[in-house]
């Protein structure tokens, strides 16, 4: 079954981008994306919509083995033209799970001179409203914001907490679950518990 793309590439990608921009500007805030739904068993619309909005010939995408399907590769090539890379370090975007992060592929943190040349993580989660609470603060957050995630997110969050030691180098993260997403840029300070 062919993967769907944006009905109106110009205006749909603008709309989705503004949601991504808002999500990155207000870490931990959840957004629901009205994006095309890939076939069952594949990534959700929020992640697919993000890929369609941000990826093209100039980007390289790394795929976690559990989501690396022939159908996704084909759809990426057809609808975005972006290249799939096996080398974590050269990925602009990495499609990962919390488990991936526990295993620790070396995604690029950027350099001190060019911290922007880093990988953006696109995470597939089972739950974006779980019981384990994380307290976020920093730019984009008036005081603090509490984000609840499932227990499975732990290895990811451990990695993101460690991420803060490298600032301004670091990973920026977009958490997705179905049609919903939230972002945690590297500037966010994360503490366990509310």
């Amino acid at each position: 079954m062919p993967w769907p793309t944006l009905n109106d590439p110009v205006h749909d990608s603008q709309r989705l981008f503004r949601q991504l921009l808002a999500a990155m500007s207000e870490p931990g805030t959840r957004y629901t994306l009205d994006a095309p739904q890939p076939p069952d068993g594949e990534i959700g619309p929020a992640l697919w919509g993000t890929l369609l909005t941000l990826c093209d010939l100039d980007t390289r995408v790394w795929l976690a083995p559990e989501w690396d399907t022939a159908a996704l590769r084909e759809a990426l090539a057809l609808h975005t033209g972006s290249r799939v890379t096996e080398c974590a370090e050269e990925a602009d975007f990495a499609l990962v799970t919390p488990d991936t992060m526990g295993k620790g592929p070396d995604f690029s943190l950027g350099s001190d001179e060019y911290p922007d040349r880093s990988t953006t993580l696109l995470v597939v989660l089972d739950d974006l409203e779980g019981a384990e609470e994380w307290r976020l603060s920093g730019p984009g957050i008036a005081d603090c914001r509490v984000l609840g995630l499932g227990a499975a997110a732990r290895p990811l969050m451990a990695r993101l907490i460690a991420n803060q030691n490298h600032f301004p180098r670091g990973l920026d993260t977009i958490l997705t679950c179905g049609a919903r997403l939230a972002a945690i840029p590297r500037s966010t300070r994360i503490e366990e518990g509310a």
Binding site: F17, L21, M24, S25, G140, D172, P185, R186, S187
Partner: peptide
């Protein structure tokens, strides 16, 4: 747009 997301993150 990709650059803007990085700008917001840093």
């Amino acid at each position: 747009r990709r650059a803007l997301l990085k700008a917001v993150a840093i």
